[in-house]
């Protein structure tokens, strides 16, 4: 009987083969090929040319602007995410569902609209435009605008990973710590933080990748001043539109390497801390 037995939940071999080929083929065509072409084009004139395009002053300036914007946006959003998750997961209050939905909102807003809203607030014809002009404060077409747009597009990343995780972990451990006389701060540092650290790291990693790579929102507010307000993705666009393909793809390859590094770390975290991360994705 065992020889004849076919597992009814297993697909026939032919179907398995076809579906595997379709899946791998689609991923190869739509995901792997674009990745390959980035490195192929970057190295079209040799490694030296690509390297020169990256250490050229305007490119380095774009790296600096990107790192600075992400360096401000990611810690702020991390602080916000922890604070929002603490409020939502560890306390009861009316309107919680609305708050969580509002936190998620920036995810479904088009990147261009994310930039547009700050133009409408701080632009010359915006709410505070003339006030800012009179006081010589530059927000648009300067770093503050880029930071604001970056904060907006990465706004929910940390909060939406931490909220389900902390809801899942409940309040018992913190309540025990408090009832044993620990202060709120040391309860957070010594009870909550160790419980959420891998989930937090995971969220910060994704938040950072998006912050470094954001294009649409930043494009609207940056003003594209070469060597001053161009981020790395904007520098890629500028070089590409100037037909400097090797330069564009060299900077693009740097961004692609960062993306691959992010994926590697993400996979390691997912594999190593599957339990904790699974709690976040079950919701």
């Amino acid at each position: 009987m065992t020889a004849k037995f076919e597992n009814p939940t297993q697909d026939p071999v032919a179907l398995r083969l076809v579906l595997s080929v379709v899946a791998i083929g689609f991923v190869a065509l739509f995901l792997v090929l674009p990745l390959l072409i980035v490195f192929k084009e970057a190295l079209a004139d040799g490694l030296g040319k690509a390297f020169n395009a990256i250490i050229e002053p305007d490119a380095l300036s774009s790296v600096r602007v990107s790192l600075l914007a992400a360096g401000i946006a990611v810690p702020l959003n991390t602080l916000f995410g922890i604070s929002a998750a603490w409020a939502v997961a560890k306390h009861d209050f009316p309107g919680k569902t609305i708050l969580v939905t509002l936190i998620d909102l920036p995810f479904s807003v088009s990147p261009v609209v994310s930039g547009l809203i700050y133009v409408l607030v701080f632009g010359l014809q915006g709410w505070f435009g003339s006030y800012l002009l009179d006081h010589d404060v530059h927000i648009l077409f300067a770093l503050p605008g880029i930071v604001l747009a970056t904060i907006f597009v990465t706004f929910p990343f940390v909060a939406r990973e931490l909220i389900p995780l902390m809801v899942d972990q409940g309040r018992d451990e913190e309540e025990a710590a408090i009832s044993l006389g620990a202060s709120g701060f040391s309860t957070f540092c010594r009870v909550t933080l160790p419980n959420i650290k891998w989930g937090l790291l995971y969220a910060v990693l994704l938040c950072n990748a998006r912050a470094l790579g954001e294009f649409g929102a930043v494009s609207v507010v940056s003003g594209h001043i070469r060597g001053q307000t161009n981020t790395m993705p904007l520098h890629v666009e500028l070089l590409y539109n100037n037909y400097d393909y090797v330069g564009a793809f060299a900077v693009a390859a740097l961004l692609a390497l960062l993306a691959l590094l992010t994926l590697v770390f993400k996979s390691i975290l997912e594999w190593r801390y599957a339990d904790q991360l699974a709690a976040m994705h079950r919701h």
């Binding site: 995901l31 674009p34 072409i37 998006r210 649409g216 993705p233 693009a252 961004l255 994926l263």
Partner: peptide, 26 residues
């Protein structure tokens, strides 16, 4: 399989401008 699984997130991680010029070239 692990590699295939990890690659799925590429469009999340790859900056859209990079994807744009790569797709345009392809």
């Amino acid at each position: 399989k692990g590699l295939l699984d990890a690659l799925i997130d590429l469009p999340f991680a790859l900056p859209t401008a990079v994807a744009g010029i790569a797709l345009s070239t392809l």
